[in-house]
Design a protein around this nucleic acid. Sequence first.
DNA 1: ATCACTTTGTGCATCGCTTCACAAAGGCAC
DNA 2: GTGCCTTTGTGAAGCGATGCACAAAGTGAT
Lengths: 232, 232
Amino acid sequence: MIRRIPQDRDRGIPDATVARLPLYLRALNGMAERGTATVSSEDLALAAGVNSAKLRKDLSHLGSYGTRGVGYDVQYLIYQISRELGLTQDWAVAIVGVGNLGRALANYGGFASRGFRIAGLLDADPHVVGDRIVGLVVEHTDELESVIKKRGVSIVVIATPATAAQQVCDRVTAAGVTSILNFAPVVLAVPDGVDVRKVDLSIELQILAFHEQRKANGGPIMAEEWPDGVVM
Amino acid sequence: MIRRIPQDRDRGIPDATVARLPLYLRALNGMAERGTATVSSEDLALAAGVNSAKLRKDLSHLGSYGTRGVGYDVQYLIYQISRELGLTQDWAVAIVGVGNLGRALANYGGFASRGFRIAGLLDADPHVVGDRIVGLVVEHTDELESVIKKRGVSIVVIATPATAAQQVCDRVTAAGVTSILNFAPVVLAVPDGVDVRKVDLSIELQILAFHEQRKANGGPIMAEEWPDGVVM
DNA sequence: ATCACTTTGTGCATCGCTTCACAAAGGCAC
DNA sequence: GTGCCTTTGTGAAGCGATGCACAAAGTGAT
């Protein structure tokens, strides 16, 4: 029963809030580009697609960074959220599995602009090893541990087939990595203290299908037997 | 204030449950392949990475499909979950934006095996139009509306750059699509009744960075001024 | 200085999800 | 059938997130 360690004073920011901070940051960056100097919670909430009371409560967890009667200073808030999320430092990320998805991730502009530096691309397929992508040469997964250690990789993205994912996971956690973003459709087993976030492309589609079916039918077919009438 | 319409009797399945059903389904499919006939809530929960009480409560929302003292029949449960999620029918999906991400999605095996049939690949770039991917020829986005109508597309995946996403969204909703999976890093505005799910690759990394920073520092730097000491 | 106006920050009620803990229900042996 | 064992299904308590509504705090005009 691992409970939250109280070492982080009482600055424990709710998970739901942390998950929304990147959203606010994106909206703020857009505003900064358009030259907006200050923004009210109402407007920012609208841009981020949330309720304004929720936005204010979220921001209040970081500190009191607004001015009553005025709003929030865009640049200042960008800095504070970035700092809280840890984006003011440079994170070395390795991507394991350089198929289409791995390439898409490597080319994704949203990483570099937020302090995530791709420090390694690795693949098990000799045909892919040696390819040059965004200025990086793909290395063989044999080099996994050495790449992690030499380049100070602290976050690993797993974009391999499902069958390889657990093995890659075991190796990178053994090498000291404690943050993993997993795209493979498997539940990874990890030691305590390791954070895994997962993105499963097909799960999202299945959730959409559920709602689409509801819209069409007003509920699923009520028959609870097998299609041919067998009861079990 | 649109409330849930009570037309779906009281079979309203909690969103949190719906989001986990695909997880259970995946675990069950693995068991079926390995020839397991029945499974207890304890074992299935373990395989899906959740707590067994939660699993039982989730399944109880679908009906009473277990046998006390024994567990759940794997095949039967697969069928019931699939039916509830709407995977027993065939969904025509169009992918708009055939960059690396679009290609990754088109090649992703997890779709076809769950009733999702890719019925169209569209891109605005003339260099990409005409490419052949998983047996489909990429069409120009000019054809968007006609592809949707002719092939009965009910779910659209947006994998375009952020700048094009809202426009694509407007066009597909105007054409009658009510389920969208959005990979572009923007908040889409849609008419009432349209479901949008979003996957933002960089948000997940940012959440990881937050926790990683916490692990390293025991909390973020306490200084709440600007780096150079300016107070605002 | 005072007043009118705007917008933040938050106490509080509410809601939905999670988890515990156990009665009910079925299987199996004799 | 009777009794024991296993596992489900669920009532109820607990917990965290949400959203309302308003006092507090700031701006700017007179």
